[in-house]
Write a protein that binds this DNA or RNA. Structure first.
Length: 211
DNA sequence: ATTTGATCATTC
DNA sequence: GAATGATCAAAT
């Protein structure tokens, strides 16, 4: 947290310069750059291993793009949606619950008009979901996972879920992976991910900075 | 080929 | 303008 507090207020460009990290002109082809820079600087176990960013602390790092109004500009990716082997799956054992058990939120002023290097790092904070938030996530998880388990994934779109939605998460719209089909047989579909709606992350910001 | 880091861009 | 759907690079 000391390192987090040390970088609050400076720009991504200044931080990248200090660590001799590359600085793209735009994020058209390096969409993950802000997160990768922050992981590197804060000492998160690099790479794309399916474990928490700070493995020994069990803490997940999430950068959160916000606008001049302080509100989130984008939904927040959580994890891949399991599309097979859902028999007996429960929210309690889900990757969603594990990922969100302990999060280091790091807001970044990231208006699109600002070049990536001019985006300003905000005040990061540790967060754990409260009972209400757990319950909201569980309801959304169960509703949507049930549809998938019943072979109805094609009925799922981004409008489902009160605070957490399922959307494509793939190289492109032609990528395919296994899924439970309408008649219980495996078929193919676009890989999906769970995303937190901005309503939810905004609530987290509000309760931290005003609560 | 998949997961993680997300943001871009079109649609509503 | 917000939300959904599409997409990109690195790491494994």
């Amino acid at each position: 947290m000391q390192r987090v507090n040390d970088i609050a207020g400076i720009t991504l460009g200044e931080l990248a310069a200090q660590y001799q990290f590359k600085t793209p002109e735009h994020l058209l082809k390096e969409k993950g750059w802000p997160g990768q820079l922050l992981e590197y600087v804060l000492g998160a176990s690099a790479g794309s291993k399916p474990v928490p960013d700070f493995e020994l602390l069990g803490i997940e790092l999430k950068s959160l793009p916000i606008g001049y109004n302080g509100k989130p500009l984008e939904t927040t990716y959580v994890t891949t949606v399991p599309l097979t082997g859902l028999t007996g799956a429960t929210f309690h054992d889900s990757n969603v619950k594990k990922k969100l058990a302990h999060v280091l939120w790091l807001p970044v002023l990231a208006e699109r008009a600002l070049q990536p290097i001019d985006r300003i790092i905000g005040s990061g904070f540790l967060w754990q979901p409260n009972t209400d938030q757990i319950n909201q996530l569980q309801r959304d998880w169960e509703e949507q996972i049930e549809l998938i388990a019943l072979g109805k994934i094609e009925q799922i779109s981004g409008h489902l879920g009160e605070v957490m939605q399922i959307r494509p998460k793939a190289a492109n719209s032609k990528a395919l992976t296994d899924v439970i089909g309408p008649h219980g047989k495996l078929t193919k579909t676009l890989p999906r991910g769970f995303y937190l709606k901005t309503k939810f992350t905004q609530q987290i910001l509000t309760e931290h900075f005003q609560g």
